[in-house]
Amino acid sequence: MSDEKEIQLASELRFIIGRLSKKIRKTSATAEKLSLTERSTLALIFQYEEILPNELAAMEKITTQSMSQILSNLLNLGLVKRRISELDKRKVIISLSEEGISLIHKSRSEKDEWLNRALEATCTAEEQEILKKALAPLAKLLNFD
């Protein structure tokens, strides 16, 4: 059983990471016109390069019908491409268009630039070193199920 101090750390960490993540998402004017799920879907397609719609739906924890609507909107915006699988003609493979790839890169660049400016404006060199040292333990949290 966790003691109150450990729970307090978890609570504060969750709150700060959540708020910072939300703030960073809002710093990208490029991706602002897209919903959070659309942005997340684009990031997944970027990560996997080619993926099936039902795989995307499972990763986003939404129905295939909802994913179909999201992909239709992204297709209309020219951000994704579809092609029929050569192995199974019933399957459609989704990938990013050049515009989709460009949007991902530009959005990430905007977020990185904002966060870099924020770090320089608000954190001392010593605090930045503390944050660097905290990256490894924070990364471990990503692998915990």
Rank of each mutant, 00 (worst) to 15 (best):
E6N: 09
E98F: 14
Q69V: 00
L42V: 11
A139E: 06
E110D: 07
I16K: 11
Q128Y: 05
E127I: 02
E110Q: 11
S107V: 02
S95M: 08
A139I: 01
L115H: 06
S66Y: 02
E50N: 13
E55C: 03
L56S: 06
I62L: 01
A43T: 11
I24G: 10
E99T: 15
C123F: 15
A118D: 05
L20M: 06
G78L: 15
E113L: 05
T64G: 12
N54H: 07
L9T: 08
I70K: 03
K26W: 00
L103D: 09
E55V: 09
R25P: 00
L36Y: 01
P137E: 07
L20D: 04
R108H: 03
E6G: 12
I84L: 11
K33T: 14
N143E: 06
E129D: 13
E86V: 07
I104N: 09
R39D: 04
K111V: 06
Q65R: 10
K26V: 00
R117P: 01
S40T: 06
I94R: 02
E126Q: 13
T37Q: 10
L77P: 01
I62G: 00
S72G: 12
R25V: 07
R108N: 08
M1Y: 00
A43Q: 14
A10P: 00
L74E: 08
L9K: 13
L71E: 04
Q47D: 12
K23F: 05
A118K: 12
I16M: 11
L44C: 06
I51D: 15
N73L: 05
K61G: 09
A57V: 08
S97N: 11
C123R: 08
K91N: 05
G100L: 02
E55N: 06
K89M: 07
I70Y: 01
S85H: 03
P137Y: 01
I24L: 15
L131A: 11
R117D: 09
A10E: 07
K61Q: 13
Q69H: 09
K22H: 07
F15H: 06
A136Q: 09
Q47G: 03
I93A: 02
T64M: 10
A29P: 06
E50M: 15
L52R: 12
T37V: 10
I93L: 14
Q47F: 04
D88T: 07
E4W: 05
C123N: 13
P137G: 03
M67L: 03
N54W: 01
V92T: 11
L119K: 08
S102C: 02
K140E: 13
E50S: 14
S107W: 04
I101M: 04
F46A: 14
A10N: 05
R19Q: 13
F15R: 14
I45F: 14
L74S: 08
T30D: 09
A125T: 11
I7F: 10
I51L: 14
L79N: 04
E86H: 02
E60P: 00
Q128A: 07
S35C: 04
R14M: 13
G18F: 09
N73T: 05
Q47V: 04
T63G: 07
L71A: 03
S72V: 03
G18A: 12
E6A: 15
S102L: 08
E50Q: 15
K23I: 07
R90I: 00
S11Q: 09
L56V: 02
M1R: 01
L34T: 10
K22D: 14
